[in-house]
């Protein structure tokens, strides 16, 4: 009987090692170890053994069973591994084929620029103020130290609705409204649409976008104006950006300035973008004129402040190298989807 068991093991071993599919392994398990399998058949003969032989043979039978089982499992794992590898090999795909498209919308480039600017100023403690686009002449001019016969009114071609209501020519009226409503400390930016009576062309539009900034508090200095706008320039145009402040004139600020930034296209060496000067004019700014503070109900003896304004359309064009303003308003999706 011992002989039979050994023979059984040898047969099983031979067959198992030559098996090459999981099905064959399963068949062999049934054949050798199943309820009606060969081992069971052999063990049926146990009854004819002498009682003292039984434990010995029993042990041998168990060993054979364990060995066959071990062999089956081992081979099965090996085959499974091989089959997995085979499957993986058969599953190679062309990873250069395009992905399945998911549709997402594109934000207008001006909104993207504005978002970036907003984030910078929100981080500096500014909040966002809004004001009407159809505005009283008073807020657009008089309250900004620009009375009726002021020469600066000449610079602006204004759309009028009535004699004392107009389409705001600048976002600066929001300054006045903010100061009328709030006491210092004031720190706001105010983006929005503004209107001037220009026919549309590559650089002009009757509707365009500005952003105003205003800070009013005790002890605000012109150094603060420079510091804040310098940070803005570096965050928006890049840390290497240089700035230059030139004296200028606005009726509602004194002193007034214009800020140039070093050209971000050429780094200041001079190129087409900056008109070969190395500098690009970006914004107008200044210390809030005492008359403006006073008219808005803020004591200029106690408080001072600075204000600035920049053109979102212009900065968008500069940032993305857009040469014609009309593209921003034409809304060709092939244009908008580039951003």
């Amino acid at each position: 009987m011992e002989e039979l068991l050994r023979k059984l093991y040898e047969d099983a071993q031979k067959e198992i090692l030559s098996a090459d599919s999981l099905q064959q392994i399963e068949n062999l398990r049934v054949k050798y170890l199943g309820k009606k399998g060969e081992l069971t058949q052999i063990l049926r003969g146990m009854g004819s053994l002498k009682p003292e032989e039984r434990p010995v043979i029993g042990q041998i039978a168990n060993e054979v069973r364990e060995k066959i089982e071990g062999l089956l499992t081992e081979t099965k794992n090996k085959i499974a591994q091989l089959e997995k590898e085979k499957r993986i090999k058969s599953e190679y795909i062309d990873i250069t084929m395009p992905g399945k498209p998911y549709e997402y919308g594109h934000k207008h480039p001006m909104t993207q620029v504005l978002d970036e600017i907003k984030k910078i100023f929100l981080g500096l403690g500014f909040s966002i103020a809004e004001g009407p686009e159809i505005e009283f002449t008073y807020y657009n001019f008089e309250a900004l130290n620009t009375p009726e016969d002021h020469p600066a009114r000449d610079l602006q071609d204004t759309f009028y609705v009535t004699s004392d209501i107009l389409l705001r020519t600048q976002t600066s009226p929001v300054q006045v409204r903010t100061m009328e409503k709030n006491k210092p400390p004031i720190r706001v930016i105010s983006p929005g649409r503004v209107y001037r009576s220009d026919e549309i062309d590559a650089t002009h539009s009757p509707v365009f976008h500005q952003m105003e900034g205003l800070v009013v508090d005790e002890g605000i200095t012109m150094g603060d104006l420079k510091g804040v706008l310098n940070i803005f320039a570096k965050k928006f145009f890049g840390e290497d950006t240089q700035t230059k402040f030139r004296p200028h004139y606005f009726p509602f600020t004194e002193p007034s300035a214009e800020m140039d930034v070093s050209c971000f296209a050429c780094g200041g060496k001079g190129c087409r973008v900056c008109g070969y000067t190395g500098w690009i004019e970006i914004l107008g700014a200044g210390m809030v004129h005492p008359n403006v503070l006073r008219m808005s109900g803020i004591d200029p003896e106690k408080y001072s402040g600075f204000a600035f304004g920049l053109g979102i359309d212009r900065i968008t064009m500069l940032k993305y190298g857009i040469e014609d303003l009309r593209l921003l308003f034409e809304n060709d999706l092939r244009f908008i989807q580039q951003f």
Binding site: F126, P185, R187, G227, P255
Partner: peptide, 26 residues
């Protein structure tokens, strides 16, 4: 003040970050 600032040079005025002002919530 503007006359003095422009001839002193705007760019010679030292930058500062509202150090005298109250903190505001952005």
């Amino acid at each position: 003040a503007e006359e003095i600032a422009r001839l002193f040079g705007y760019n010679n005025i030292e930058d500062s970050l509202m150090k005298n002002a109250q903190t505001t919530l952005g």
